[in-house]
Design a protein around this nucleic acid. Structure first.
Length: 461
RNA sequence: GGCCCGGUGGCAGAGUGGUUAUGCAGAGGACUGCAAAUCCUUCCACGGCGGUUCGAUUCCGUCCCGGGCCUCCA
């Protein structure tokens, strides 16, 4: 069996992946808080996790992938108030858009997509358990987790409590026993959403939902817990503390064995932020850029490295895909055997099995094409499609991708045909000035001309 | 202040103790009336300084620079 290696944030090194149960790999990824459109950073997490799942599925018979939707949160409450929209309407709208946008990027839906508001009972149970066992305390209408009660607190993010205090940027609530303690349950005002609980009407803190939903949907322990790099602290650290204490586990691995975190996206070299106004929304990008281009761009650097989003990244990804689609177009009549994984496309899988080395995988993909004269076209095509399938690319119709098909856009096809005929006549008459001016005219219409052995072809640029 | 991660050719971006990453761009050539596409050839590299070594871009130390986290954040 192929060996899969994964960088584990817990321990901070690459490890050979050894599943808890090889018959069913269980993965949980912290999903979006749905109060706005997803940005390219959200998409990176979704695409990278999607790739992780695709690779695991190549190796293991069954993979269960859970990724939640956070649909109760102070930011959501704020956004709902601002837009004068009921919370449920807002979260339904943006979770639907999130899934639609991710689908365009070739991201498959998780097997389960639990919502926080549907697991309040489970959260209340967990919190009660933590209070009963003296890991948490009730004060001033809040339930707080007592960080000092968990000896492994800080192990994931490799920081000690003293270090955090040195930073002195921890929110100080008057009634906290310890500044590092975090909220499990907080009271809701009458105009805020809330649920009845042993501690009065209120709502959960942010971290408890993932502890509740991951346990409920996957059982413990599960194999991989994923999310963005910024979630390492405090979110995942707190999840570990809650779950481990509730179950009297000591080691974080008893909750989840491997901790998988993707790096950030910057935009033209700068961090994405609302203040600089450079947040790239997926919903906008896919209006002008094919989803596959966005996906490939997001996979062009290693998932733990920072990724710079720029015009040239997009352009390169587009060029790369065009090259593959041209080959697929030229070989559109070739039979393929996609069930058969050929040697070279295995190299793509091998690269991905080394902690998702997408850069190397894409280099191997390129090698498949470079090797095309040493083997049958059918073999090359098969290899390309197999590799593309794992990467989640090359799934479109080549003629549509390259613009040879009418894509429902308003082109005057009869005019184009007439101009092409005029140009052919001009060329036959060796009137190249006229021929070139017709080509420029077509170009200005967004049409590119290709003179091939089979005659003149046109495509949408 | 603490913790973590990086610094590779014009750009993007892997990897390795001694041998070509890869893509785009550039140069030359084939093809073409010219283009486009395709193919062939080719230039360009490992932040600074020490150390280990027969040999380091790769290991160690140190310095400089950049990014992230420590508060909500993918």
């Amino acid at each position: 069996m192929t060996e899969f290696k994964i960088h584990n944030t817990y321990g901070n090194k690459k490890e050979v992946f050894i599943p808890n149960d090889p018959e069913n790999i269980k993965v949980y990824a912290c999903g979006p808080t749905v109060y706005d459109y997803a940005h390219i950073g959200n998409a990176r997490m979704a695409v990278v996790c999607d790739l992780l799942i695709k690779v695991l599925k190549e190796i293991y018979p069954r993979v269960t992938y859970v990724s939640n939707i956070t649909d109760i949160d102070d930011k959501i409450i704020e956004a709902a108030t601002e837009n004068n929209t009921p919370i449920e309407e807002l979260t339904n709208k943006f979770s639907k858009i999130y899934n639609e946008d991710m689908l365009v990027l070739g991201v498959q839906l998780p097997d389960l997509q639990p919502r926080a508001t549907q697991h309040i009972d489970k959260m209340i149970n967990l919190i009660s358990n933590l209070i009963e066992n003296d890991f948490a305390y009730f004060t001033n209408a809040h339930v707080l987790f007592s960080v000092k009660k968990y000896s492994n607190y800080g192990k994931l993010s490799t920081r000690t409590q003293e270090e955090q205090i040195a930073g002195s940027r921890v929110e100080i609530l008057e009634f906290k026993d310890d500044p590092a303690d975090f909220v499990l349950w907080k009271p809701s005002e009458d105009d805020q959403p809330g649920w009845e609980s042993p501690w009065g009407r209120g709502r959960p803190g942010w971290h408890i939902e993932c502890s509740a939903m991951s346990e409920k949907t996957l059982g413990l322990p599960f194999d991989i817990h994923a999310g963005g790099q910024d979630l390492i602290f405090p979110h995942h650290e707190n999840e570990i503390a809650q779950t481990c204490c509730a179950h009297k586990f000591n080691k974080p691995q008893d909750y989840a064995k491997y901790w998988f975190h993707n790096g950030f996206v910057t935009v033209e070299g700068e961090k994405m932020s609302k203040s600089t106004g450079n947040i790239k929304l997926v919903n906008n990008l896919i209006k002008s850029i094919p989803g596959e281009v966005v996906r490939l761009a997001l996979l062009s650097s290693h998932y733990r490295q920072p990724l710079n989003w720029s015009e040239s990244t997009i352009k390169q990804s587009k060029n790369t895909l065009d090259r593959y689609y041209r080959f697929l177009y030229d070989t559109k009549d070739q039979e393929t055997n996609e069930k058969k994984i050929e040697t070279t496309s295995n190299k793509v899988l091998d690269a991905l099995c080394d902690d998702l080395n997408t850069s190397l995988a894409l280099a191997e993909l390129s090698n498949i094409l470079d090797n095309k004269n040493n083997q049958t076209k059918s073999t090359t095509k098969t290899q390309l499609l197999c590799a593309g399938k794992i990467l989640g690319i090359l799934g479109e119709s080549p003629s549509k991708w390259l613009g040879y098909e009418d894509q429902g856009e308003k082109f005057d096809v009869s005019l184009i045909d007439k101009l092409i005929q005029d140009r052919i006549k001009a060329r036959n008459n060796k009137d190249f000035t006229l021929a070139d001016s017709i080509r420029i005219e077509l170009n200005n219409m967004g049409i590119e001309i290709e003179d091939t052995q089979q005659g003149t072809k046109w495509r949408k640029k």
